[in-house]
């Protein structure tokens, strides 16, 4: 930043949503790399939260809640939204896209089977990827991740549980240099399906990172808390 453009207040700028493009990407990388910066962003979110008091109200149009209920009751939504809800809070908006993609896939299958297997996006020959996530913080333990591109499944070893009022969120930073959430870590580890839109980011050289976030994950969908473990994906 040039001197004539003012002091460094990137944490506030990120919390306010002023940045775009490369400037935003730089600030998001700082959130991952600098725990102090991540903390500052959270403090700014708290300050700005006080301004919600001032926001003028406007009665919502009739029928919105009924639409919400219909969406929740639709069978396609229950399968795609309810089950992974706790597991994928940060990906809430993407689950329906993934479900739609799955639906299209099933519909266009030339040879309808009674019970079609889960759709597979990656080429069958794609090699398995592994990452060893080194702890960046004494509260964390080392973890390993294995990703199977053919099935879109990520297996994680056990992780140390975050404090009771925090969640550990898993991110992938790929070619676009932007952190994308892969959902919350479970202390017991285990297998998880990676949402379709996220799969392209899981490639050799991509970084996996775990940050400590407010319960349920980063409210903004981007990392805000300190990074506790990270490691690079590589082929087996």
């Amino acid at each position: 930043m040039s001197a004539e453009e003012g002091p460094d207040v990137a944490a506030a700028e990120l919390a306010l949503g002023l940045l775009e493009g490369e400037e935003r990407a730089v600030a998001l990388r700082r959130v991952l790399a600098e725990p102090g910066f991540a903390g500052e962003v959270e403090v700014w979110r708290g300050y700005l939260g006080q301004l919600f008091d001032l926001w003028p109200e406007a009665a919502a149009p009739a029928g919105v809640f009924e639409r919400v209920e219909r969406t929740l009751d639709a069978p396609a939504q229950i399968a795609s939204v309810r089950a992974p809800a706790r597991f994928w809070p940060a990906l809430a908006g993407l689950t329906s896209i993934a479900a739609a993609a799955a639906l299209v896939f099933i519909v266009v299958r030339p040879n309808p089977l009674p019970a079609p297997p889960p759709p597979v996006a990656a080429p069958a020959a794609a090699p398995m990827l592994v990452a060893s996530l080194a702890p960046m913080d004494k509260s964390a333990t080392a973890m390993a991740a294995v990703y199977d591109p053919a099935r879109g499944q990520l297996r994680l070893t056990e992780a140390s549980a975050p404090a009771a009022n925090r969640s550990a969120e898993l991110w992938v930073i790929g070619d676009d240099k932007t952190p994308h959430s892969l959902g919350m870590m479970k202390p017991e580890g285990g297998m998880r399906a990676v949402a379709m839109p996220m799969r392209a980011h899981l490639a050799p050289g991509a970084m996996l990172a775990v940050t400590i976030e407010p319960l349920g994950g980063s409210p903004s969908g981007k990392p805000t808390g300190p990074i506790v473990a990270m490691g690079k994906l590589s082929t087996v």
Binding site: R45, G49, F52, W55, A60, V64, F65, R67, V68, T71, L72, V81, A85, R86, P89, A92, G93, N165, S167, P214, L215, G216, G217, P219, S220
Partner: peptide, 28 residues
């Protein structure tokens, strides 16, 4: 707004009353 309330429905299980005021959490 429809999407906002779907998101709230999905994420409400993660809301921690000791951490944030409910209206700030929802408004964010």
């Amino acid at each position: 707004l429809h999407d906002v309330y779907l998101t709230i429905w999905k994420r409400a299980g993660a809301y921690e009353p000791s951490r944030a005021s409910p209206i700030t959490w929802l408004a964010t």
